[in-house]
Computed example of a mutant assay.
Amino acid sequence: MDDKGTLSDLDKRIIEAFVVFDHASSNTVDVREVGTIIRSLGCCPSEAEIQEILVAVEDEETSGSVRLDRFLLIVSHIIQERRLQPASPEKLLKAFLTLDRDGKGYLTKEFLSKIMMEEGEPFTHEELDEMMGAAIDGETGNIPYEYYINQLMVRSEL
């Protein structure tokens, strides 16, 4: 809130996202919902970053829950600092080019699925299905990554 007691647009967005998971209308959510809420705000945290946020926001009196006031304070600050931002198109392209050793301009579904599930911080099956649904060319069954990156950028501007 600013010094006049009004909410910023960012604070309103955070509150709206939080309220979706506040099933009891008690201004609290289960700690297991925090990652989903933060991602719904356009942030891209790793699981380690989610754990750091949980340490900061978990209610000390009611373990396993997060209160709106604390969540709003911490998450608003994180977003204002531009932490947890998605990768730039240039960085995404560089990553895809690194994986496309033959310079074909696409990756196969099987290859990318294997990488996404076994390397680094693995995707969940749901995350992988969602990504593949948007990335796969219906005609070839492959992932033309430059087209996919462009689609991601168009969606993020909506």
Rank of each mutant, 00 (worst) to 15 (best):
R67W: 09
T28S: 01
D30S: 12
V75A: 01
R70W: 12
I79S: 02
Q51R: 05
V75R: 00
T62F: 14
S46W: 08
T108A: 12
V34M: 01
F123H: 10
D30E: 11
E52N: 04
Q85D: 05
S40I: 06
A48C: 15
D59T: 09
H23L: 14
E33D: 12
H125K: 07
S25W: 12
R82F: 12
E33H: 04
S76L: 09
D30Q: 06
L84C: 03
G42E: 02
A87C: 10
S88N: 13
S63V: 11
P45N: 04
T62I: 11
S40F: 00
Q85R: 08
T28K: 00
E121R: 08
E119P: 14
E126C: 06
S46C: 15
V55L: 05
Q51F: 07
E130G: 09
D22Q: 03
F96R: 11
L93Q: 12
G64D: 15
I78K: 02
H23K: 05
L41W: 02
G120W: 10
A56R: 03
M116G: 14
V31G: 02
L93Y: 08
T124M: 05
G35W: 03
S63F: 06
V34F: 02
E119N: 06
T124I: 07
L112C: 13
Y106E: 05
S40Q: 03
I53F: 03
L68C: 12
T62E: 13
L54K: 00
G35T: 08
E110M: 06
T98Q: 06
V34A: 01
H77Y: 14
T124S: 05
A56H: 08
I38W: 00
D59F: 04
C43A: 04
L112E: 11
G105A: 10
E60Q: 10
G120E: 11
D129S: 10
I50C: 02
S88A: 08
S76H: 03
R70A: 13
V29P: 00
S46P: 10
S76W: 04
K91M: 05
D69L: 07
D69H: 14
F123Q: 13
A56P: 12
E121M: 05
T62H: 07
T108H: 08
R83A: 09
I38A: 00
I50Q: 03
M117G: 07
M117L: 10
R101H: 07
Y106C: 04
I78D: 01
H125T: 15
S88L: 14
L107G: 09
V57S: 01
G103S: 09
K109S: 15
S63Y: 12
G42D: 01
P45D: 03
Q51D: 11
E121A: 05
P86A: 15
L99A: 09
T98D: 10
L68P: 02
P86I: 04
P89I: 11
F111P: 11
S40V: 10
Q51W: 07
V66Q: 00
D30M: 08
L107C: 08
E110L: 13
Q80V: 04
R101D: 14
H23C: 14
S26G: 14
S25F: 13
K104Q: 08
L99Q: 11
R39F: 00
S25C: 09
E110F: 08
E121V: 06
G64A: 15
Q80W: 14
M116P: 09
N27W: 07
D100H: 10
D102S: 10
E81D: 15
T36V: 03
L128W: 11
L99T: 15
I115H: 12
G120M: 06
L84P: 00
I53L: 04
T108V: 06
